[in-house]
């Protein structure tokens, strides 16, 4: 079913919404949820110590820094929520969702992109502001960057679909939210 030719976007050679395209991203997001939750538990003082194999008290310095507590909830908790959104929006929808549910694909792309951006920013802050490194924070950043590339092809297919919607007679608003009667009007 996933290889049904009608599921391949026009001008493409493959369907970017198949499970073998999406499952690896979801697995990365779930690993991200675990790492970020663990770090958040430390920041919320639910656990007393944090695992740091390489950089001495680096993780302690980073996770207790002012930057990580600039918002009402610690930054790792926000990261955990971000990864959770990535995982959920990665799972929802069938293997033609680039067309049938553009909104979820676009939310997915928007969730993956900024999370990666914030992670990179936090990696920069570690040595520049605090002269310290945090192993698990770096792992989390690697995961969030690795998710961007594979997620963006589906986003592109959905954006191209929305472009075709705009040039058709269908309602852009309804097609975005996946109203079937409108989607059927678009090739």
């Amino acid at each position: 079913m996933a290889n049904n030719p009608s599921y391949i976007p026009p001008g493409w050679d493959y369907n970017p919404a198949t499970w073998d395209q999406r499952i690896p991203i979801v697995i990365l997001a779930v690993v991200g949820v675990f790492i970020a939750s663990y770090l958040a538990l430390y920041q919320l003082e639910i656990i007393d110590t944090v695992w740091e194999p390489f950089f001495g008290d680096g993780s302690v310095i980073i996770l207790n820094s002012k930057v990580s507590h600039v918002l009402p909830i610690p930054d790792a908790a926000i990261g955990a929520i971000g990864y959770f959104v990535d995982a959920v929006t990665g799972i929802i929808g069938g293997t033609k969702r680039w067309k049938t549910m553009p909104w979820i694909v676009i939310v997915f792309g928007l969730a993956v992109g900024p999370l990666g951006f914030v992670s990179v920013m936090l990696v920069v802050f570690q040595p520049v502001l605090f002269s310290a490194w945090c192993t698990l924070c770096l792992c989390s950043a690697v995961i969030s960057i690795a998710m961007i590339g594979p997620a963006m092809d589906e986003m592109l297919a959905s954006l191209q679909f929305m472009q075709r919607v705009k040039k058709s007679e269908a309602s852009t608003w309804k097609a975005f939210w996946g109203v079937q009667s409108e989607i059927e009007k678009v090739k």
């Binding site: 026009p10 001008g11 493409w12 050679d13 092809d153 592109l156 191209q160 472009q163």
Partner: peptide, 23 residues
């Protein structure tokens, strides 16, 4: 190796590849 309906730049084009392919 693969085609992407004209890629990201197609989003700014008036008559992008994916539109032509769908007709």
């Amino acid at each position: 190796e693969k085609n992407y309906g004209g890629g990201w730049s197609s989003l700014w084009k008036k008559n992008p590849k994916h539109l032509k392919q769908s007709e």
